[in-house]
Amino acid sequence: MSSLSALENVHAKGQFGDSEGKDDKNLLSISETTNLLIVQIVQYKSSNSSLDNMQVDGLNLRDNPSLVNFNDNTRILWNGPRNWILVSKKKDILNEIEQKFNDNEFAITDISHSKAIIEIEGKEAKEVLKKGCPFNFGELEKNQSLNSTYNGMSVTIDMLNDDPDKYRIFGLRSFGESLYHSITDASLEFGYIAK
């Protein structure tokens, strides 16, 4: 059995939009990211466990809004009070999480297959996001994340880099194709390369 990515039917490689006569380096780049482990970690209200000693892949869970704790392989996004989304290239981390976090105090859910992930990179990337998302992107910095909506669809946006801007956008897999259409449609005026 082969697995199909969330954007298998819509993501076509090539150059689109107003890209004629522009240097490829200055164009937006849009790609689909697959093969990431995505785990939601929720600490129950009744839990009294201190988070200070709880580490995953050497990273702490911090209850600070918008903060992303990260290393080369793993990023832990704040998703709400006592609620985090862990995104990692290392799939075997799931075992580590299940061993470290007690069932009676934490809910661990593997949501790797329920998300569509779009990465957008380029100096106009922020403008593309502004077109569909009501968040004030002027205050978003590198290694911060947020939950919001893009054209009415719930999304999580993680800012990976700021030189040039690079964002990872997580949407529900069921909305993946609509989200991809919205993002690429908003990118047409700048011209983009789908990788």
């Binding site: 009501p134 968040f135 939950n147 919001s148 909506t149």
Partner: peptide, 17 residues
Amino acid sequence: MLHIKCPHCGIRSQNEF
């Protein structure tokens, strides 16, 4: 459109609520 200050996240658009 209203802007609502979420006590957890800060000022956000009414669309999110």
